[in-house]
Amino acid sequence: MNERLETKFLGFKLASPLVLPAGVMGMSFSGLKISADLGAGMVTSKSLTLQPRTGHKGPVIAEFEGGILNSMGLCNPGIKDGLAEIDEFKEGSDTPVIVSVFATSSRDFIALTEEVNSSSADLLELNLSCPNVYDEFGIPLSASKDQVYEIVSSVKDISQKPVIAKLSPNVLNPAEIALAAEAGGADALCLINTVGPGMLIDTLMVKPILFNKFGGLSGPCLKPVALKLVYQAYSVVNIPIIGMGGISTGNDVVEMLMAGADIVGIGTAVYSRGIEVFSKINAELLQFMDENGYKSVITLPKLEKLDV
């Protein structure tokens, strides 16, 4: 990898500012490994829960012109088997790894944090924003600044790993939520999770395409929303940000970095540009820097913060 792409995040040295986000390729050690080998500077596990979950019945994916809808339903092998995959990944890789966890109460988040403490994970991400389990768990925690504060602060009390709060775009007061996560002690923010949820309809069968009816929206159509929300959060908090949402090219990554992100997640572009998307975007970043006279990723400028 090229040293001009190197960056730092919460003290970890990353070979590239590109991150594999939760929910993409993160089911197995080998899925994480191929992403890192092909140019991701950091990788994230699938969101793990205390017990294994098989997720929703299919279809769980619907492709459309602007991206995809998904309602995977938090399928994962459970925290114990999931962390065994992480340990196996770390045996063969120096790439920092984030373990994402999902729960609906402080008590369960604490139980998950204890498991992560005794694993080889480098960072802990709290998924406070899955949009695909409304029926089961209600509105995501990240809709309430009080809940975000409570969960982040109770996890921070015991976590031996840096804590990242993964936030939802689907809230009325995103800046307040970001501030609540920071006040709770979050070391970093990750945003945005998928948008909506939305739905698509099969007009011949007269049925929603997703069996869960609704699913989180991802893909290129998200980019403007993601840029705006990252920029808003960047303007109010003093902790680093993993920015993501519809990012699929080198120029998109530069936009996200300028909006205030420190590093950038690449998810749905794995579908549209292949698993080699990380190496492709790394090359595009270098080309952008060459053409515009920037020495390295860390010297790329940021927008002036919003006046708030």
Binding site: G23, V24, S30, G31, I61, M72
Partner: peptide, 16 residues
């Protein structure tokens, strides 16, 4: 599950 290379459920070890 997804059929389009995103969810990672069908990756095979150790190649990914």
């Amino acid at each position: 599950k997804c059929g389009v290379g995103l969810c990672g459920n069908c990756t095979v070890d150790p190649l990914g």
